[in-house]
Computed example of a mutant assay.
Amino acid sequence: MTDFTVVAQGLRFPEGPVAMPDGSVILVEIADGRITRCFPDGTRTTMASPGGGPNGLAMGPDGKLYCCNNGGFNYHEHPSGLLIPNGQADDYSGGRIERIDVETGAVEILYKDGDFGCVLRGPNDIVFDQHGGFWFTDHGKNRPRERDVTGIFYVKADGSHLEEVIFPSENPNGIGLSPDGNTLYAAETYTCRLMAFRITAPGKVDQTGGLGGAGIPLYRPAGYKFFDSLGVEECGNICVATIGESGISVISPAGELVEFVSTPDPFTTNICWGGADRKTAFVTLSGTGQLIAIPWARPGLKLAY
């Protein structure tokens, strides 16, 4: 098992970590519909309460947080103590993209289902590019006998543009950009595939990737596993949270497994990097409600904002 330090515990399905300059980490607690700031001394504060299912977070060019809100899940409390998402919430409030003021906690809805003719079922994860726009995945929702068919979107942070660029995608989850900004990576949960898309212009990808549409499958592990969110290292490796095997799969841009960093929670869901050298990985262990810090062998990629 990888050496790690527990930064926070008792969280309600944490995800979407964002490392801040002061050493704190802002994350979502999906099951409680809130945004929480965790400090190095173990204290934490509620920063905002958007409700629904806040999921992916990213800092934008205006110093505000942008949040993918999936509208909420039902949950199952497993006898082992794990908290497990269990389909669309009975009080599902709709998919949306929110902007959150870090200082005041004010929440505004930037995009919602139906805007610009787009269907938003369960926005999941988010990454900004150097042009001030951002990509996000829509993971969709599961219901007793059906599952949404969803896609990958590009939007402008000022609320003026929302476009579904890639459709269909098999329940996309994690999303990230290569260091040069020319490749978009997306992790599909149920197929457990890491997909790569060639970016041709801001918000556009090569749509002739091959059989099945845009993009090419870069990597898929053997066995019964699922991919969740991801982060990218400075050297270009893609670090994908892997459910089932419990840890982070580190994959080269060529599609080779570099290493697997194990964790003690089967619902290991996301990763980001902090510290002066960006060699401290903050990883969300959602099933057990923990945020942990892992000394990382290579620095994480410096984000756009």
Results as ranks from 00 to 15, higher is better:
Gly132Leu: 05
Arg44Cys: 08
Gly52Met: 04
Phe39Met: 08
Arg143Thr: 09
Leu184Cys: 04
Ser24Ile: 08
Thr288Val: 15
Thr288Tyr: 03
Gly287Glu: 05
Glu98Met: 03
Leu303Lys: 09
Phe267Met: 12
Val232Thr: 09
Ala222Leu: 10
Cys38Gln: 11
Thr46Lys: 10
Leu194Glu: 06
Lys112Ser: 13
Ala48Gln: 05
Thr268Tyr: 05
Asp101Lys: 00
Arg12Tyr: 10
Tyr75Pro: 15
Ile152Leu: 09
Ala8Ser: 13
Ser169Asn: 08
Gly23Pro: 06
Ile109Phe: 04
Ala186Val: 08
Gln207Glu: 14
Pro85Met: 01
Met59Thr: 12
Phe39Thr: 07
Pro54Thr: 07
Ala222Asp: 12
Asn55Tyr: 11
Ile126Glu: 02
Ala304Trp: 01
Gly213Ile: 02
Ala196Gly: 03
Gly231Phe: 04
Arg193Asn: 15
Phe282Gly: 02
Val25Glu: 00
Asn173Trp: 04
Asp265Cys: 13
Phe226Ser: 13
Thr242Val: 08
Gly287Ala: 12
Ile216Thr: 11
Ile251Cys: 02
Gly287Ser: 12
Asp3Thr: 12
Glu233Ser: 01
Lys302Ala: 10
Ile175Leu: 11
Asp125Trp: 00
Thr150Ile: 09
Cys67Gln: 06
Val28His: 02
Gly181Trp: 13
Gly51Pro: 07
Gly300Pro: 00
Gly51Asp: 13
Phe4Ala: 05
Phe136Leu: 06
Gly117Leu: 09
Tyr190Gly: 12
Leu285Cys: 14
Ala293Pro: 08
Asp148Tyr: 02
Ala58Trp: 01
Gln290Trp: 13
Thr268Arg: 05
Thr191Cys: 10
Val258Asp: 13
Pro217Asn: 14
Arg298Ser: 14
Tyr224Ser: 14
Gly87Tyr: 00
Met20Trp: 12
Cys67Ile: 11
Thr2Gly: 06
Ile199Val: 15
Val149Arg: 04
Glu98Tyr: 03
Arg44Met: 12
Val7Pro: 01
Pro217Ala: 11
Thr288Ile: 15
Gln88Asp: 03
Asp277Thr: 03
Ala157Asp: 10
Cys67Ala: 14
Phe116Trp: 06
Ala241Met: 15
Val258Thr: 15
Val149Tyr: 02
Val102Tyr: 07
Gly159Thr: 01
Arg193Ala: 08
His139Glu: 04
Cys67Leu: 15
Leu285Phe: 15
Ile243Thr: 04
Ala281Ser: 11
Gly274Ala: 07
Ile292Tyr: 04
Gly63Arg: 13
Glu163Trp: 07
Val155Ala: 12
Ala297Cys: 14
Arg298Tyr: 11
Leu82Ala: 09
Asp148Glu: 13
Asp228Glu: 10
Asp22Tyr: 12
Trp135Arg: 02
Asp265Leu: 14
Ser24Asp: 05
Tyr224Gly: 08
Lys302Thr: 10
Tyr111Phe: 15
Phe39Ala: 14
Leu194Arg: 04
Ala48Lys: 02
Ser169Phe: 05
Pro179Asp: 03
Asp41Thr: 14
Glu256Asn: 10
Val28Lys: 00
Ser49Cys: 11
Gly16Gln: 03
Ala281Asp: 09
Val250Ala: 00
Ala89Phe: 14
Pro202Asn: 10
Met59Tyr: 13
Leu162Tyr: 07
Ser229Tyr: 08
Thr268His: 08
Tyr92Gly: 04
Gly133Met: 04
Gly53His: 12
Gly56Lys: 01
